[in-house]
Nucleic acid binder design. Structure first.
Length: 174
DNA sequence: CGCATTTGACCCGCGC
DNA sequence: GCGCGGGTCAAATGCG
Protein backbone atom coordinates (compact mmCIF):
# COMPACT_ATOMS: atom_id res chain seq x y z
CA UNK A 1 0.00 0.00 0.00
CA UNK A 2 1.84 2.99 -1.17
CA UNK A 3 0.17 6.36 -1.19
CA UNK A 4 1.47 8.10 -4.20
CA UNK A 5 -0.57 11.11 -3.34
CA UNK A 6 -0.34 11.78 0.37
CA UNK A 7 -2.10 15.08 -0.12
CA UNK A 8 -5.00 13.41 -1.78
CA UNK A 9 -6.24 12.36 1.56
CA UNK A 10 -6.81 16.01 2.32
CA UNK A 11 -8.31 17.61 -0.73
CA UNK A 12 -8.63 20.86 1.14
CA UNK A 13 -4.94 21.39 1.44
CA UNK A 14 -4.00 20.37 -2.02
CA UNK A 15 -4.83 22.54 -4.95
CA UNK A 16 -2.35 21.54 -7.58
CA UNK A 17 -4.03 18.25 -8.16
CA UNK A 18 -6.82 18.27 -10.70
CA UNK A 19 -8.08 14.98 -9.43
CA UNK A 20 -9.90 14.86 -6.15
CA UNK A 21 -9.40 11.53 -4.54
CA UNK A 22 -8.52 8.82 -6.89
CA UNK A 23 -6.81 6.21 -4.87
CA UNK A 24 -7.54 5.66 -1.26
CA UNK A 25 -5.16 3.06 -0.06
CA UNK A 26 -6.79 1.75 3.03
CA UNK A 27 -4.98 -1.40 3.82
CA UNK A 28 -6.65 -3.89 1.61
CA UNK A 29 -5.44 -7.41 1.48
CA UNK A 30 -7.51 -8.29 -1.51
CA UNK A 31 -9.25 -5.83 -3.76
CA UNK A 32 -10.01 -2.24 -3.09
CA UNK A 33 -13.13 -0.82 -4.57
CA UNK A 34 -13.80 2.85 -4.48
CA UNK A 35 -16.64 4.65 -6.13
CA UNK A 36 -15.69 7.92 -7.69
CA UNK A 37 -18.02 10.78 -8.16
CA UNK A 38 -19.30 11.38 -11.63
CA UNK A 39 -18.39 14.50 -13.45
CA UNK A 40 -20.81 16.76 -15.20
CA UNK A 41 -21.46 15.62 -18.76
CA UNK A 42 -21.93 19.17 -19.92
CA UNK A 43 -18.42 20.01 -18.93
CA UNK A 44 -17.13 17.29 -21.12
CA UNK A 45 -19.18 18.43 -24.04
CA UNK A 46 -16.13 19.54 -25.96
CA UNK A 47 -15.76 16.28 -27.73
CA UNK A 48 -14.91 17.72 -31.10
CA UNK A 49 -11.20 17.60 -30.62
CA UNK A 50 -10.36 16.94 -34.18
CA UNK A 51 -13.88 17.46 -35.36
CA UNK A 52 -13.89 14.22 -37.26
CA UNK A 53 -15.48 11.54 -35.24
CA UNK A 54 -18.53 13.57 -34.50
CA UNK A 55 -20.64 11.49 -36.81
CA UNK A 56 -19.56 8.38 -35.03
CA UNK A 57 -20.66 9.63 -31.67
CA UNK A 58 -23.94 10.97 -32.87
CA UNK A 59 -24.95 7.75 -34.53
CA UNK A 60 -26.71 6.58 -31.44
CA UNK A 61 -30.13 8.08 -31.26
CA UNK A 62 -30.26 10.96 -33.64
CA UNK A 63 -31.48 9.65 -36.96
CA UNK A 64 -33.22 12.67 -38.43
CA UNK A 65 -30.19 14.83 -38.94
CA UNK A 66 -27.80 13.38 -41.40
CA UNK A 67 -25.86 16.58 -41.69
CA UNK A 68 -24.29 17.88 -38.56
CA UNK A 69 -23.80 21.55 -38.10
CA UNK A 70 -20.13 22.12 -37.49
CA UNK A 71 -20.91 25.42 -35.92
CA UNK A 72 -23.04 23.98 -33.20
CA UNK A 73 -21.53 21.57 -30.77
CA UNK A 74 -23.36 18.46 -29.91
CA UNK A 75 -24.25 18.31 -26.28
CA UNK A 76 -23.76 14.92 -24.80
CA UNK A 77 -26.76 13.19 -23.42
CA UNK A 78 -27.08 12.23 -19.83
CA UNK A 79 -24.10 9.97 -20.03
CA UNK A 80 -22.82 9.76 -16.53
CA UNK A 81 -19.31 8.59 -16.05
CA UNK A 82 -18.93 6.72 -12.82
CA UNK A 83 -15.38 5.88 -11.97
CA UNK A 84 -14.23 2.90 -10.04
CA UNK A 85 -10.67 2.49 -8.97
CA UNK A 86 -9.34 -0.59 -7.36
CA UNK A 87 -5.95 -1.99 -6.73
CA UNK A 88 -5.00 -5.51 -7.50
CA UNK A 89 -1.88 -7.51 -7.16
CA UNK A 90 -1.04 -8.78 -10.58
CA UNK A 91 2.04 -9.17 -12.62
CA UNK A 92 0.07 -8.41 -15.72
CA UNK A 93 -1.26 -4.98 -16.44
CA UNK A 94 -4.19 -6.25 -18.39
CA UNK A 95 -6.53 -8.22 -16.23
CA UNK A 96 -8.85 -10.36 -18.26
CA UNK A 97 -12.22 -9.40 -16.91
CA UNK A 98 -14.03 -11.14 -19.73
CA UNK A 99 -14.33 -8.08 -21.93
CA UNK A 100 -12.35 -7.08 -24.95
CA UNK A 101 -10.12 -4.09 -24.43
CA UNK A 102 -8.33 -2.13 -27.06
CA UNK A 103 -5.40 -0.08 -26.01
CA UNK A 104 -5.75 3.42 -27.35
CA UNK A 105 -2.91 5.21 -25.68
CA UNK A 106 -0.09 5.13 -23.27
CA UNK A 107 1.21 8.08 -21.35
CA UNK A 108 3.62 8.40 -18.54
CA UNK A 109 2.56 10.17 -15.40
CA UNK A 110 4.86 12.44 -13.57
CA UNK A 111 4.19 11.03 -10.18
CA UNK A 112 4.84 7.56 -11.36
CA UNK A 113 7.86 6.20 -13.03
CA UNK A 114 5.92 3.82 -15.19
CA UNK A 115 3.59 4.94 -17.94
CA UNK A 116 -0.13 4.60 -17.68
CA UNK A 117 -2.06 2.54 -20.19
CA UNK A 118 -5.45 3.47 -21.52
CA UNK A 119 -7.85 0.81 -22.68
CA UNK A 120 -11.24 1.03 -24.24
CA UNK A 121 -13.94 -1.57 -24.55
CA UNK A 122 -14.38 -2.71 -28.11
CA UNK A 123 -18.08 -2.53 -28.52
CA UNK A 124 -20.50 -0.41 -30.48
CA UNK A 125 -22.25 1.70 -27.95
CA UNK A 126 -20.25 0.48 -25.04
CA UNK A 127 -18.12 3.42 -24.11
CA UNK A 128 -16.30 1.93 -21.23
CA UNK A 129 -12.79 2.99 -20.54
CA UNK A 130 -10.22 1.31 -18.45
CA UNK A 131 -7.13 2.83 -16.99
CA UNK A 132 -4.27 0.71 -15.88
CA UNK A 133 -1.34 2.03 -13.98
CA UNK A 134 1.53 0.20 -12.45
CA UNK A 135 3.16 1.36 -9.28
CA UNK A 136 6.75 2.29 -9.78
CA UNK A 137 7.68 0.96 -6.41
CA UNK A 138 5.73 -2.22 -6.48
CA UNK A 139 5.38 -3.57 -9.91
CA UNK A 140 3.15 -6.27 -8.52
CA UNK A 141 0.54 -3.70 -7.63
CA UNK A 142 -1.64 -2.57 -10.47
CA UNK A 143 -4.17 0.20 -10.18
CA UNK A 144 -7.08 -0.30 -12.49
CA UNK A 145 -9.62 2.44 -12.96
CA UNK A 146 -12.85 1.65 -14.71
CA UNK A 147 -14.91 4.38 -16.27
CA UNK A 148 -18.45 3.72 -17.33
CA UNK A 149 -20.40 0.52 -17.43
CA UNK A 150 -20.69 -2.25 -19.97
CA UNK A 151 -23.95 -2.50 -21.82
CA UNK A 152 -23.28 -5.92 -23.16
CA UNK A 153 -22.82 -9.34 -21.59
CA UNK A 154 -19.43 -10.73 -20.90
CA UNK A 155 -17.94 -12.89 -23.56
CA UNK A 156 -16.14 -15.08 -21.15
CA UNK A 157 -17.36 -16.47 -17.91
CA UNK A 158 -14.88 -15.19 -15.45
CA UNK A 159 -16.45 -16.04 -12.18
CA UNK A 160 -13.44 -14.72 -10.44
CA UNK A 161 -13.47 -11.31 -11.95
CA UNK A 162 -17.17 -11.21 -12.51
CA UNK A 163 -17.60 -11.33 -8.81
CA UNK A 164 -15.36 -8.34 -8.42
CA UNK A 165 -17.23 -6.40 -11.06
CA UNK A 166 -20.44 -7.22 -9.36
CA UNK A 167 -19.17 -5.75 -6.14
CA UNK A 168 -18.04 -2.65 -7.93
CA UNK A 169 -21.50 -2.03 -9.25
CA UNK A 170 -22.95 -2.43 -5.83
CA UNK A 171 -20.57 0.11 -4.46
CA UNK A 172 -21.53 2.59 -7.09
CA UNK A 173 -25.18 2.22 -6.24
CA UNK A 174 -26.01 5.48 -7.98
C1' DC B 1 -6.88 -10.49 -44.12
C1' DG B 2 -8.42 -8.62 -39.86
C1' DC B 3 -7.66 -6.61 -35.89
C1' DA B 4 -5.17 -5.31 -31.86
C1' DT B 5 -1.27 -2.99 -30.70
C1' DT B 6 2.36 0.75 -30.94
C1' DT B 7 4.20 5.46 -31.17
C1' DG B 8 3.75 10.40 -32.01
C1' DA B 9 1.33 14.43 -32.35
C1' DC B 10 -2.37 17.32 -30.99
C1' DC B 11 -5.49 19.31 -27.95
C1' DC B 12 -7.59 20.70 -23.79
C1' DG B 13 -7.80 22.43 -19.07
C1' DC B 14 -5.73 24.50 -15.38
C1' DG B 15 -2.01 26.69 -12.85
C1' DC B 16 1.15 30.17 -12.26
C1' DG C 1 -0.20 34.55 -21.64
C1' DC C 2 2.56 30.66 -21.37
C1' DG C 3 3.68 26.17 -19.54
C1' DC C 4 2.77 21.73 -17.73
C1' DG C 5 0.21 17.68 -17.45
C1' DG C 6 -2.87 14.66 -18.97
C1' DG C 7 -5.84 12.50 -22.36
C1' DT C 8 -7.20 11.03 -26.97
C1' DC C 9 -6.80 10.10 -31.68
C1' DA C 10 -4.65 8.78 -35.90
C1' DA C 11 -1.80 6.04 -38.94
C1' DA C 12 1.40 2.24 -39.37
C1' DT C 13 3.01 -2.22 -38.13
C1' DG C 14 2.89 -6.86 -36.41
C1' DC C 15 0.74 -10.87 -35.25
C1' DG C 16 -2.88 -14.41 -35.27
Amino acid sequence: MENTYPLLFHPQQTSHTPYGNLYTSDTLSGVLVQGLKEEDPSTRASRSSQGIRESLVVSSNEAGTSLDKPTKKKEEKKARRPRYAFQTRSQVDVLDDGYRWRKYGQKAVKNNKFPRSYYRCTHQGCNVKKQVQRLSKDEGVVVTTYEGMHTHPIEKSNDNFERILNQMQIYSGV
